[in-house]
């Protein structure tokens, strides 16, 4: 285990929509596939062929979907090789891709990943091939803590960004990519960065509040992509470079967030909810927004939409993506990456 890390075990706290914890095997597969996928992704966009439909391989598909987000015009293709006729139903399970499968089929879907299923592997398939033995080999090579725990330091700092973004109302909703307007907020964040990094998991809260767990995991998934973001701009430590690419990075981050929410059990609002939402105004609309996203049995989120739609539906949320992208180089500097 590396020094100066804060290793925690967050996946154990995840619960399904009925409030039941996931099996040990499922949680174990998440850890394995997360470590494996993060190790494999080097920042260059690459299509992937996942050869196999075991629970472990489906977890690999889950984590590939979570992390394969690049600044590119072309989507990343994830091809799953499976002879199972009902593989789609399997993928729709909460422990794998959940609502993402249906969302990818929508006409208005503009996500940067594409999911394909084929019956047999062939050399014609585009992308890097991953087999179950690759994953197991990787896991066996690595130490237990490197696989079954997560260094949550980046996630803690990412969460501070979200909290700060929520506090500062004057982060502009319009002209969202005018990076100069974040200057004060970033100064405040740099001040906050000096604070000691405390653990992400508050056991008492995480045991009882599934939304808290999902938000915590959201920070982890977001933070796991920081290096990929840095790679996208050639690991440039100059803040100016991050500012110049802020819009492209923010669009990519929103796509990542949408995928993450869909996998975590959130769905886009349906026709009736949209009608209801549009018929409410001011505080009542905000309250309804919260009801939808906190209904543990059937989570729904207004912001699960394209970036363009987000700009017209809920522009106040755009600040989180933009602000986070500007904060990443500061976080990486703080953690001396």
């Amino acid at each position: 285990m590396k020094k100066n890390t804060l290793r925690e075990c967050p996946f154990e706290y995840m619960r399904d929509r009925n409030g039941n914890k996931f099996s040990e095997e499922t949680v174990g597969n998440w850890y394995k596939s997360r470590a494996f996928v993060l190790d494999r992704l080097d920042g260059n966009q690459q299509d992937v062929v996942v050869d196999g439909d075991s629970p472990l391989m489906l977890s690999v598909v889950r984590h590939l979907a979570l992390y394969s987000h690049y600044i590119s015009n072309k989507p990343t293709v994830i091809t799953l090789v499976s002879q199972n006729a009902t593989i789609e139903d399997e993928l729709k399970k909460e422990e794998y891709l959940c609502h993402l499968v249906d969302y990818l089929k929508r006409a208005d879907c503009d996500l940067d990943i594409e999911l394909r299923t084929v019956k047999e592997f062939s050399d014609d398939l585009q992308g890097v091939r991953i087999t179950e033995s690759d994953v197991n080999e990787f896991v066996n090579k690595k130490g237990h803590d490197d696989v079954y725990t997560v260094d949550t330091r980046k996630a803690v700092l990412a969460q501070r960004i979200y909290e700060l973004g929520a506090l500062i109302d004057n982060l502009t909703a319009e002209d969202i990519h005018s990076t100069k307007r974040y200057a004060m907020a970033l100064d405040a964040f740099e001040y906050l960065l000096r604070d000691k990094i405390k653990p992400l998991i508050d056991k008492a809260q995480w045991e009882n509040d599934p939304i808290k767990v999902k938000n915590g995991l959201s920070s982890i998934y977001s933070a796991d992509c920081f290096e990929l973001r840095a790679f996208a701009i050639n690991n440039d430590k100059n803040y100016k470079k991050w500012e110049e690419n802020n819009e492209a990075l923010s669009i990519s981050e929103h796509a990542r967030w949408v995928v993450e929410r869909l996998i975590m059990g959130y769905r886009p609002i349906n026709h009736e909810e949209r009608m209801q939402y549009e018929s409410l105004f001011g505080q009542k609309r905000q309250a309804y927004f919260k009801v939808l996203k906190n209904n543990v049995q059937d989570l729904a989120h207004i912001d699960i939409c394209s970036y363009r739609d987000l700009r017209r539906i809920d522009p106040n949320s755009l600040k989180y993506d933009s602000f986070l992208m500007l904060a990443i180089p500061r976080i990486l500097k703080r953690l001396k990456h």
Binding site: R274, E278, R308, R312, I313, D314, P315
Partner: peptide, 14 residues
């Protein structure tokens, strides 16, 4: 008309 406008991709809700 209100709901139609709300759903138009070029119309801002705010």
């Amino acid at each position: 008309l209100y709901h139609w406008l709300m759903s138009q991709p070029d119309v801002s809700q705010l």
